[in-house]
């Protein structure tokens, strides 16, 4: 049975996963520089060891309520089209081993803008693990 490894993280109450190999690194909250006039979802720019990296807030992208005051997001730096992009998430989870037979199309229960960014769901024992479509998630030019 084909199995894959997903790096997991939570955004609001949802558990997401992305292919482990797309993740470059995970770092704690970094000070961000806001980019005025940028499309909705671009939270700002962070300094990643001398490289300027755009941070995308997944809460905004998924149409979820903003992060409660005082909670700092984590940066999941993924490489998309050979460019690093940081995904702002609430908390980091484990690496999950999933297999194709656990997979299903996006659940009917999922609505809102987030649905377009999800490839599908893996049914874990006690929770659903949503597979994030990273390319679409970082493509903030596209409305969802």
């Amino acid at each position: 049975m084909e199995s894959r490894q997903l790096a997991t993280f939570t955004v609001d109450t949802l558990l997401f996963g992305v292919e482990v190999y797309t993740v470059q690194e995970v770092i704690r909250y970094q000070e961000m520089t806001v980019v005025p006039l940028a499309a909705h979802g671009a939270a700002g720019l962070i300094n990643l060891r001398g490289e300027v990296v755009t941070a995308i807030d997944l809460r905004t992208r998924l149409g979820l309520p903003p992060r409660p005051d005082g909670e700092m997001p984590m940066n999941v730096v993924v490489r998309v089209n050979d460019e690093p992009v940081s995904l702002l998430v609430d908390a980091i989870g484990d690496v999950a081993q999933v297999s194709a037979d656990q997979f299903e199309e996006p659940p009917e229960t999922m609505t809102g803008p987030g649905r377009a960014l999800v490839l599908g769901a893996y049914k874990l024992e006690n929770q659903l693990l949503l597979a994030l479509d990273v390319k679409r998630a970082v493509d903030i030019g596209v409305a969802v």
Partner: peptide, 10 residues
């Protein structure tokens, strides 16, 4: 430093 693809359009 160049801006990332997402922000070039601005």
């Amino acid at each position: 430093k160049p801006l990332s693809r997402q922000l070039k359009g601005i």
